[in-house]
Design a protein around this nucleic acid. Structure first.
Length: 268
DNA sequence: AACGAAACCTGCGCGC
DNA sequence: TGCGCGCAGGTTTCGT
């Protein structure tokens, strides 16, 4: 599930469901997901206060600290009655004071959770991993960081340290809208083009947030994770279909190891 | 420092 | 039917 708009959708759903509720028990079924040994003890008898998000990270705040959660490729949160049976791939279960439970589900087991006692500790941890979100990017700063890089520009968009929140689907969409090839070496991108990329990034992510994110490949819907942006996709998943600008075929290639869709005629 | 590839996992669809 | 391969919305780590 997880680029910025999808994580934001989860954030809102968590906010709606668990704020004000107290944890009465925690079941860590797959310990490798949880990177902090004391997570269970820290959660029990404490109350959710607010849910924040930085890039693709969820900050699930309690009255005594922060559960920092990353969904990676397929992590999801389910909110369901406590007495329902534990299903395969439900790896962490947090039982609440209202006979409901928050369940972390993750088929590929890539996601992870940390515990931090203070927001300062979270900020320190994330500052080593995250750059600004697109709407907070200063184009000249970003240009300075990438103008000597030789990697394809798509790799830059996917580098969370440079711009946070963009993933494989939205990177393709952003590049298409900007009419820039995903393969263009970063050091050939002009200030003007970078401005277009940053602006398009903001627009695409914000529009996707409005629509509740993107749901493709028949992912299950839980906790508001089914969005509608998939109906707005212009290139991603469109291999062989006519480009909406020029009618030539969208092609699928590999860039930075990721499946990449683009129009070789419109995107230069 | 920067880059590409591999690693971490499970499940699905496809071709033989 | 069964098997092997490639692929999947991400990030970290390991070799050059």
């Amino acid at each position: 599930m997880p680029e910025l708009p999808e994580v934001e959708t989860v954030r809102k759903a968590l906010e709606k469901n668990i704020i004000g509720h107290r944890v009465i028990d925690v079941d860590i079924i797959l310990p490798k997901i949880v990177k902090s040994n004391e997570l269970k003890e820290k959660l029990i008898n404490h109350t959710f206060t607010q849910i924040k998000r930085r890039g693709k990270w969820l900050l699930i705040m309690l009255d005594n600290g922060i559960l920092l959660s990353h969904l990676r490729m397929e992590g999801k949160y389910y909110y369901k009655p406590s007495n329902e049976e534990i299903l395969k791939h439900e790896h962490v279960i947090i039982y609440l004071d209202n006979n409901m439970s928050l369940r972390y589900v993750d088929t590929r087991q890539f996601g992870l959770m940390h515990w931090f006692d203070t927001i300062e500790d979270v900020d320190l941890y994330l500052s080593e991993r995250l750059g600004n979100e697109p709407w907070d990017i200063k184009v000249t700063d970003l240009y300075h960081k990438i103008h000597k890089r030789t990697v394809p520009i798509k790799n830059i968009l996917l580098d969370q340290k440079l711009v946070s929140g963009i993933g494989n689907i939205y990177a393709d969409e952003i590049l298409f809208i900007s009419k820039i090839s995903p393969l263009r070496p970063a050091n050939q991108i002009t200030i003007k083009e970078l401005t277009k990329l940053v602006n398009s990034s903001s627009e695409v992510l914000q529009k996707a947030i409005e629509l509740g994110g993107t749901t493709i490949r028949n992912f299950e819907s839980e906790m508001g994770q089914t969005g509608h942006y998939q109906n707005k996709l212009l290139v991603h998943t469109k291999e062989g279909l006519p480009c909406l600008n020029c009618n030539n075929r969208i092609v699928k290639i590999k860039v930075g190891g990721r499946g990449t869709y683009y129009c070789p005629d419109c995107q230069k």
